[in-house]
Every structure is written in C-alpha cells, then in structure tokens.
Design a protein around this nucleic acid. Structure first.
Lengths: 210, 210
DNA sequence: GTCTATAGATTGATAGAC
DNA sequence: GTCTATCAATCTATAGAC
C-alpha cells in the first residue's frame, strides 16, 4: 500500500484547487505545493497547465458520462419495448443522478463537482471547450430522449427548457457549502438524496410545463 | 455632445471585458487599452482593480435592484389588498423581467448580463462577495414573496427550489451567443421576449411542482 | 487629470544536472 | 523521474514630471 504516485497526486491537487479557486486563479506552484511534488513534475507528466486540466476532466467525466449514456439508453429502450413514450422524469434522472451520486460518494468529489458546475458558463474558453467536448454526446442524447418523452412540444421549446435545466443542475453542483444568504428558518444542511429528488422534481415540472 | 469622460470609458471597457473574459483573466492594461486611456487612470479614478469591479456592479445593480424591489412590493401589496396569496408567477416575474428587459435594452448589456450570470457561482471570492452584497435584499424579499405565494410548501423546500430557479436564471444570462452544441432542427436565435416568457413558465412550474 | 517609467511580485515553462 | 535554477512574460500598483 504505497502512497499514490506523482501523477495521481498532481491530479488530486489540481482537481481540488481548480474546483475551489478556478482554473485561471490556480498556479502550478499552488498545485505542486499541495501535492508535495516538484514544480517541474507537471511539465514532465502532463506537458502544460491546459493539458493538466484536460486530464482532470477525463479522469472523472469518461466513466461518469458512460454511465449516463448507459442509463439513458436503457430508459429509451424500455419505453420502446413498452411502445409508449418514456417518462421525462426518468430521462432527466438518467442524466442527473449519476453526477449527484458521484458527488456524494467520495471525499473531494464536491471540488470536482464545483468545477463541473462552473464549466458550462466559464468565461475561460479553455475550461469551457474542454468541458463541452465531454458533455456533447450526453447532451445530444438527453435532448433526443426529451423529444421522445414530450412529443407535443417543439424542438425549439425543448431546447430552451433543457438549457434552463442545465442551469439548475450546474448551480446545484456549485452551491454546496457556499450558500451565504440564508433566510430565517432555513438551515443550510441538506441530505444529498433529498436534494437530488427535489432537483429532479423541479426540472421535471419545468420541462413538462404547459 | 462630447465623448464620454475617462471614468465612464473605463467602466464601459471593464464591464465588457469582465463579462466576456472574466474578472481574473482581464488585465488593467486590456481595460485601459480598450478604453483608450492611460493605465494609471484606473488607480486615479477607482483606486484598485477590485474597486473598479465594485463600481461596475454598482452602476447597473443599484437601479436594477431598486426596480425589482419596487415591482416585488407592488405584487405583494396588491395581493394583500385582494386578501389572497400572490401568484408565484408574478412574484418571479418581478425578479426576472427587469434583468431580461435591461439585457435587451442597450448594446453592451449582454456583457454585463454574462458577468452577473456568472457572479453567483464565481470561484473568485472578490466577484462573488461584491455581487452578493447587492443581491441579498432582493433575494430575501423574493424568498418571502414565494413563502406567501406558496404557503403549502415548507420554507426549506421553497429555499432549495429558489436556488434551482437562480441557477436557471443565471445560466440564461450567460449562455446567449455562446451556445456551441445545437441539436439538429434547433436554431440558436431567440426573441428575448419569448425567452423571458419561456424562462418564467419553466421556473414557475418548478416552484409549484407537487 | 494625464502621462512615462518602473518597482516588485508572480506566472508558465524549460534547460540541464543527477 | 526528480530536482535546482532560471528565463521571459505578465501582472497590479505607484512615484513623480507635466
């Protein structure tokens, strides 16, 4: 049981700092210092700061998006067998639950979660483009699933509503532990499972709105 | 009809660049270069980069949030006179429409719009804190309005649903003109008024979900 | 108020010894 | 693979002439 190798230590440190401070505001020195490795190790193992970011995305998003696509395809296949449209809630669940489950699963996952939640709207094109490359196939499949689930709506309308949904999901991934404004009678703590159910109910109702 | 003074030119340039490139990624040199003024003018007129950001927020958010509070209070007052709860849609409209109207009103407003859409989840605490200072009273009044509109829901539940709503609104402010993934049969162009109505329908249905 | 010039710190990246 | 040392570029901020 040796300690993680240099490459993994850098990935872990970068994930945490990119998530909490942002890509641009995180220096390679901050990363290697947290990882306990030499500054030059980043160049040796990854080549550049951008390539490191890409590696941080890949490590989590490849398995996560594969799981999303698998669940999405199962929901659509079952609906086809039953010869009726899939439920919008189940289509959305296939997209949302894997991310929230991952987030609740391991320590440090909330940093990656915040990174992902910010990526879609990030001002930095490096971050945004790297993220879009991974999310594109999932997004397109999710959209077609919603077209099947809600055939009475136009593609245009479904597209905008899906954008609103992505906004809710992204914000949910960012906000945990960062809520500063709490009205009286509201406690910040929230069971991840309840949050997941609430989010799913919210976006399902929004997508199905008359 | 002289050209805008140095202070306004700096504000305009900063607003545009903070919106498109982000606060951290925008240098004072980029701002003064776009504004056509000397680098030292920022220190003279504002004192620091952070103070400049605060001034960029203030110029737009003080009138905008005053309008939001005014509309919000009118909706709540009318409901009190009529002795029935306000409609959730009208409460949400008082919060959402002023921003989207402003955004459609003047050129350059979409840059500020993107800045605001990103601020709530920004990794940079400078940006986030400056924004929260302005949004706090509006947020608290909006929350209490929703408590009145939807009395059958707990404060906790309303709070989370309001967070999801903020996510949708924020993302809407960010995404215009930046949508990279377009499914077949979907055109990026969208009438601002239609987008506003669609967003309002989406979040109202989400807030009212069973 | 506006300018030049520069201080002082930090950045990403790399050359070359071990 | 890991390290030291360093380069060249960039940043915010300011001192001081006009």
């Amino acid at each position: 049981m040796s300690q993680p190798d240099t490459k993994s230590r850098i990935l872990d440190a970068a994930e945490g700092l990119f998530g909490s401070d942002g890509f641009h505001a995180t220096s390679l020195r901050a990363i290697t210092s947290r990882a306990g490795v030499n500054l030059a190790a980043v160049s040796y193992h990854f080549g550049s700061k951008e390539a490191l970011l890409e590696a941080v995305f890949e490590r989590r998003l490849i398995p996560l998006n594969a799981l999303r696509l698998q669940r999405l395809n199962r929901v659509l296949a079952e609906a086809r067998v039953a010869a009726h449209p899939p439920a919008a809630r189940e289509v959305l669940r296939a997209f949302i639950e894997p991310m929230l489950e991952f987030r609740a699963s391991e320590p440090g996952a909330d940093a990656f979660s915040a990174l992902i939640g910010r990526a879609l709207a990030d001002a930095d094109e490096t971050v945004r483009a790297a993220f879009l490359r991974h999310i594109q196939p999932v997004f397109l499949q999710l959209f077609e699933g919603l077209v099947e689930a809600l055939p009475e709506q136009s593609r245009e309308q479904l597209f905008w509503r899906l954008q609103f949904t992505l906004g809710s999901v992204s914000h949910t991934l960012c906000m945990a532990g960062r809520l500063r404004i709490l009205p009286p009678g509201v406690d910040q703590g929230c069971d991840p499972e309840i949050l997941s159910t609430e989010l799913l109910s919210f976006v399902t109702a929004g997508m199905e709105a008359p």
